[in-house]
Design a binder for these strands. Structure first.
Lengths: 340, 340
DNA sequence: GTGAAAGCGCTAACAG
DNA sequence: CTGTTAGCGCTTTCAC
């Protein structure tokens, strides 16, 4: 191990001919130091290449300025954008993102242990495998948690969610307005909360129009899985006139499968809708009708809720829903007559 | 501010009826403690909900176990994958990712200051705006740095790079083998190192086949920019028979522009090649001929290089090149005769 | 406004 | 194997 030739506030104090606490004061906001002292200190610091040690500061302040962000690498495709924006909003609050991945339930204990050890100021969880138990652990240590696109049944933790019900209702309404009657739901992985929320949103919306028992196939959010499960479904079932997909990537996979292997057209023969509003959804070959999540506002809300909770731990848990925004593309048309 | 009711090793020691250092020993690897003591300590710790404070440990160990990863949010599209994999490899080395975004040169000083304050063990930089000066600053503080897909002219810092020259040579060779003679290079943003490397790779490869002065248009890596700059180019110039794009996203944009607005076919009328091997490149509507970066190996190499450097700071800077892998799609065909 | 001194929670010699 | 002790680099009273 290397012994870093660290330069400490004592070194600077010595060089500047002042006390160590004088040096400390120069680097703290809202503390009064005479101009003369400040200049002497800054000059010495510059010469020695001194930077205050945030670790030592953390130990005293009981605040690290770090926010743990937990993601699953297998997550829905819009996570990069979410992560980038979270990071930006967190940086604006003058805090830092400490990144954790949680891919399967077994790692849960380890990850939580590490997060607790690092004394983070708060946690943003974007992941499945995050059970009420985990939340309790953070609560015990007074570490605020905000869930992103995930809510606990008892709403005991603050959440920021896209309103998947409302989004799917808009999509289903469009399909129904186009006289569709034969639907297929292409759902996401069963262990994903978002996928479950979208599935139940689709079912509820269809139900409200009197459509019961709609068939469901399950993919894993990926393009390939969409093609595979649609292909398998088509072999054994009559084709629907409309497919409601759990995300845009699967919608795109469905479209390609319809065109390439089922030899049908989108939207003339089959209509397809997605969810997320990823950039590929607007590409000319697909032009998906979809619902985009207001990522900017949702990430901002998540960070603000968390920061408030850090400052005032007694704020009760709040669930904030954001409506999705309908993007009408060219992937929905009137249901074909001959299919009734 | 909340006064967290932290439980410290002293509390545990008291409850277990042992000394504080006994508690400490239980939580340190490779330190011998009697079974009896260990059990007493673990029991007390469990009851009190004790977790060792990593911050205090850092202060002594002179090692935080944190790696700063610097990204730019405007980066090339495959960054999410890179970040996820870096994070995974770093976690395997039992270290943590502290995330920093660097979008413009002005933030550079602030970001560096923060990274230094946080006493990270090392830095992985995936960003432009990272000048030799910045590297010097980290060197002064003995913080190892590894650049990802970026190299300094003097090779004074370790780098892990995809061999863009070799990748572009493969792509250009394919086009030349298909008798193409009229090329257009669609380059990425001028301030991106990767974009520059790919541009010069394309030029060199073309040059080696005797093609000089190939026209270049500049996009910003995005789908829209590709469409815009191709559209503007087409208004004033004869169309090429082959377009060499700086990344897959722009290649896809170019294909859509060719099909939708130029009313030509890909690959029959114009061939298009990309770079990166993003998942959309294999979608049925595009089937790009492209070169994929060995992201898994590159990220692993970057982390290993960095960890070695952390353990043995005297290792001289090394540049590791990884070859891209050619993926032959269906976006290249023989050059049309009538275009010569 | 400044310096002295007491910790933050832990690790790492050092005796016993 | 265990307890005692002295810090890691900083912030924060508290006198002056």
């Amino acid at each position: 191990m290397n012994k870093k030739n660290r330069v400490t506030s004592y070194d600077v104090a010595h060089a500047a001919g002042v006390s160590q606490s004088a040096v400390s004061r120069v680097y703290r906001p809202g503390v009064s130091v005479s101009k003369k002292t400040r200049e002497k200190v800054l000059k010495a610091a510059e010469e020695l290449g001194y930077k205050p040690n945030a670790i030592a500061r953390m130990l005293i302040n009981q605040s690290t300025g770090m926010i743990a962000v937990i993601i699953s690498s297998r997550a829905n495709v819009n996570f990069p954008e979410v992560l980038a924006q979270l990071n930006k909003h967190i940086a604006e609050k003058n805090k830092r993102v400490l990144l954790f991945t949680l891919d399967d339930a077994e790692q849960l204990e380890t990850v939580i242990e590490q997060i607790l050890a690092y004394q983070v100021d708060g946690v943003v969880a974007l992941t499945a495998h995050f059970e009420p138990d985990s939340v309790t652990q953070f609560a015990k240590h007074n570490i605020p948690v905000v869930l992103y696109n995930r809510e606990l049944p008892d709403h005991s933790v603050s959440s920021v969610c896209c309103n998947h019900d409302q989004g799917l209702r808009m999509l289903v309404d469009i399909l129904v307005n186009h006289h569709h009657q034969h639907f297929l739901i292409m759902a996401g992985p069963k262990d994903s909360d978002v996928a479950r929320a979208r599935l139940s949103g689709a079912r509820n919306a269809l139900l409200s129009h009197g459509f019961t028992d709609t068939n469901v196939v399950y993919g894993d959010y990926s393009y390939d899985s969409a093609r595979e499960c649609l292909s398998a479904y088509a072999e054994k079932n009559a084709l629907p006139t409309a497919i409601i997909c759990a995300n845009d990537t699967m919608a795109i996979g469905a479209i390609d499968e319809i065109r390439e292997n089922l030899n049908l057209r989108v939207p003339e023969d089959i209509s397809v809708v997605g969810f997320d509003g990823i950039s590929a959804s607007s590409w000319h070959s697909y032009q998906l009708t979809t619902v985009s999540q207001p990522t900017y506002f949702m990430t901002k809300a998540a960070v603000e809720t968390l920061v408030n909770l850090i400052e005032s731990p007694d704020i009760p848990p709040e669930t904030r829903y954001w409506p999705g925004k309908l993007i009408e593309g060219n992937s929905v048309a009137a249901a074909p007559r001959d299919n009734e």
